[in-house]
Amino acid sequence: MTIRNIEMMQLKFFFLLCCAAVALAQDKYTGKYDNIDLDEILQNRRLLLGYSNCVLDKGPCNAEGKELRSHLEEAINDGCSKCTDAQKKGANKVIDHLIKNELDIWREMTAKFDPDGNFRRKYEAEAVKRGIIIPEEGA
């Protein structure tokens, strides 16, 4: 094997690695907003309503809201498989908060994105494991 052949093989290998890295990077949602202060949003009803109205197509969206809305249904349906670790942790925090403090918003979102209740039951069961009490329907 000549040096030229070895160089060509290395170049091909490098190219394949680059392609694999791009493919893997596309398997996750952008981490651009992973450092957003969820506590600030959850503790400020005006901000929370702004985001929930955006997601529910009931109001305008800022850049973060548009990003969330564009991936929310897919994330719900595939168990957040493309979410970063920060996004999964944040999703649990938001779900817990909505169930405990904003049940009407939680129910409106689950009605829109999970009308059959398949994923709602899964997420609520996980919330119960974290100590969240789910009020009965009509409560």
Rank of each mutant, 00 (worst) to 15 (best):
L11S: 14
K12E: 00
K12Y: 09
K12H: 08
F13I: 05
F13H: 06
F14I: 01
F15T: 12
F15K: 11
F15E: 01
L16M: 03
L17I: 08
C18M: 04
C18W: 10
C18A: 15
C18T: 13
C19Y: 06
C19E: 09
C19W: 11
A21I: 13
A21M: 09
A21V: 03
V22Q: 02
V22H: 07
A23F: 11
A23Q: 10
A23I: 07
L24C: 06
A25M: 12
A25C: 10
A25S: 15
D27H: 14
K28R: 13
Y29P: 05
T30K: 09
T30M: 10
G31W: 05
G31T: 08
G31Y: 07
G31D: 15
Y33F: 15
Y33I: 06
D34T: 04
D34K: 04
N35L: 04
I36V: 10
I36H: 11
I36W: 04
D37H: 11
L38R: 13
L38W: 02
D39P: 01
E40R: 12
I41Q: 03
I41W: 01
L42Q: 01
Q43F: 09
Q43W: 02
N44D: 12
N44A: 00
R45E: 12
R45C: 01
R46H: 14
L48A: 08
L48V: 03
L49R: 15
G50W: 01
Y51Q: 14
Y51E: 11
S52M: 11
S52Y: 02
C54M: 00
V55Q: 03
V55C: 03
V55F: 13
K58Q: 12
K58F: 05
K58P: 07
G59I: 10
G59S: 14
P60M: 12
P60F: 07
P60N: 15
P60C: 12
C61Y: 09
N62T: 10
A63N: 12
A63D: 15
A63C: 06
A63I: 14
A63H: 10
E64S: 04
G65S: 08
E67Q: 05
E67W: 11
L68S: 05
L68F: 05
L68W: 13
L68K: 06
R69N: 04
R69S: 14
S70C: 08
S70H: 15
H71F: 13
H71C: 05
E73I: 08
E74T: 07
A75P: 08
I76K: 00
N77I: 00
N77D: 03
D78H: 08
C80R: 12
S81D: 09
S81T: 01
S81R: 05
S81C: 02
S81N: 04
C83T: 00
C83Q: 00
D85L: 02
D85M: 02
Q87N: 02
Q87S: 03
K89M: 15
K89P: 03
G90Q: 00
G90E: 01
A91S: 15
A91W: 05
A91R: 07
A91M: 09
A91H: 08
N92C: 12
N92I: 05
N92D: 09
N92G: 10
K93A: 10
K93S: 03
